[in-house]
Amino acid sequence: MNPIALLFLALAMSTDAFAAAIGKGATLNRPHLLEALRIGLIFGSIEAVTPLIGWLIGRSASAYVEAWDHWIAFALLVVLGLHMIHEGLKPSEEETEKPSRQPFFKTALTAIGTSIDAMAVGVGLAFIDVNIWLAAALIGLTTTVMVTLGVMLGRVVGSVLGHRAEIFGGLTLIAVGVWILSGHL
Rank of each mutant, 00 (worst) to 15 (best):
A5K: 15
A5H: 15
L6N: 09
L7T: 02
F8S: 10
L11C: 02
S14I: 03
S14L: 03
A19Q: 01
A20Y: 08
A21R: 08
A21T: 01
A21H: 00
I22W: 02
I22F: 01
G23Q: 04
A26I: 13
A26Y: 12
A26K: 12
T27S: 12
T27C: 11
T27R: 13
L28V: 14
N29E: 14
H32V: 11
L33F: 09
L33R: 15
L34M: 03
L37H: 00
I39S: 05
I39W: 05
I39L: 02
G40H: 01
G40C: 03
L41G: 09
L41R: 08
I42D: 10
G44Q: 05
G44A: 04
I46K: 03
E47S: 12
V49R: 09
V49F: 13
V49L: 12
T50G: 07
W55H: 13
W55K: 04
I57E: 14
R59M: 12
S62C: 03
S62I: 09
Y64W: 11
V65F: 14
V65G: 06
E66F: 01
E66H: 09
W71T: 04
W71A: 15
I72G: 00
I72Y: 00
A73K: 07
A73R: 14
A75L: 13
A75R: 05
L76M: 15
L77G: 03
L77I: 10
G81Q: 07
M84T: 07
K90C: 14
E95M: 05
T96M: 04
E97G: 05
P99W: 02
P99H: 12
Q102I: 07
F104L: 07
F105I: 15
F105D: 05
F105A: 15
F105E: 15
L109P: 10
T110P: 08
I112Q: 10
I112K: 00
S115F: 06
S115I: 14
A118V: 03
V121W: 05
G122C: 09
V123F: 11
V123G: 05
G124A: 05
L125R: 03
V130C: 08
I132R: 02
L134D: 07
A136K: 13
A136Y: 09
A137Y: 02
A137F: 05
T143Q: 14
T144V: 13
M146L: 01
V147M: 04
T148P: 10
V151C: 09
V151W: 06
M152R: 04
M152E: 08
G154I: 07
V156R: 02
G158Y: 00
S159A: 04
G169F: 00
G170R: 04
G170F: 08
L173V: 01
L173H: 07
V176S: 06
V176G: 11
G177N: 06
V178P: 01
W179P: 11
W179E: 06
I180Y: 10
G183Q: 02
G183F: 06
L185M: 00
